[in-house]
């Protein structure tokens, strides 16, 4: 089974040299720690920055330099600043190559729910609806089951949707899955020590298992 760092490490392998990448809050943020230094990858923060760097050293925090999670960060050489409309303009125009975000539920046709739980205080969708509606390549990083032990990979989402037919790939603590255009979660890799049977048991949506499933290498 993978821990959060393991999920982030595996997702980092999806990033290619020259990519512009938007990382959501939570596990996706951790992905930045595993991008090989030999690669030229530019991180986009949707509050208006390309070239996001690591947290500042203590004493060097700048209130004017934050990421979309409102955390103090740094800007790498070659960074660019822009306003919020341009930021979502480049997202809508598919200039950002890869979007990695968390989810509460994903359906077998690629719908995603990650912003609202009925009966609970709604905080808002932020930029998530814009990102999922426009991004060319969306990878979801999440736990395979919720706190009640119920599968988060479903035939249909039960929570209010953030976007439809948009998720391309999912990485959970149990495995890696493609979301097929015709519907269904195709098991690509399983986490170390996890059997195919365990994955079948934890997946409520249509799961496609073909041939020998290799273990995730991280």
């Amino acid at each position: 089974m993978l821990d959060k760092q393991g999920i982030a490490k595996r997702i980092a392998k999806e990033i290619k040299d020259g990519y512009y990448v938007n990382l959501g809050i939570g596990i996706p943020t951790l992905v930045a720690n595993y991008i090989p230094e030999t690669m030229d990858v530019v991180l986009q923060s949707e509050n208006g920055l390309l070239g996001m760097g690591p947290f500042p050293f203590e004493g060097e925090e700048d209130a004017d330099v934050i990421n979309a999670g409102k955390q103090t960060i740094t800007m790498l050489p070659g960074s660019a600043i822009f306003d919020s409309a341009m930021s979502f303009g480049m997202i809508r125009a598919r200039k950002v190559n890869l979007t990695i975000l968390g989810a509460m539920e994903v359906s077998e046709n690629g719908d995603i729910a990650n912003w609202k739980i009925p009966g609970k205080m709604v905080k808002g969708m932020g930029g998530a609806m814009d990102l999922v509606a426009s991004a060319e390549n969306i990878i979801v990083a999440m736990q395979h089951v919720n706190k009640a032990g119920e599968s988060k990979l479903l035939p249909q989402c039960s929570l209010p949707l953030t976007g439809v037919h948009c998720v391309k790939k999912i990485v959970t603590e149990l495995g890696v899955f493609d979301v097929l255009p015709q519907g269904g979660f195709k098991l690509l890799e399983r986490a170390p020590g996890v059997s195919v049977e365990e994955i079948i048991k934890a997946t409520a949506g249509k799961l496609i298992v073909e041939g020998e499933i290799p273990e995730i290498l991280i």
Partner: peptide, 20 residues
């Protein structure tokens, strides 16, 4: 919000920016 004193309209961030 929960007591109904405040009305809230939630709009996707990119839509909000682009409507401005």
């Amino acid at each position: 919000l929960l007591s109904g004193e405040l009305e809230v309209e939630l709009i996707p961030q990119g839509t909000l920016a682009t409507l401005c």
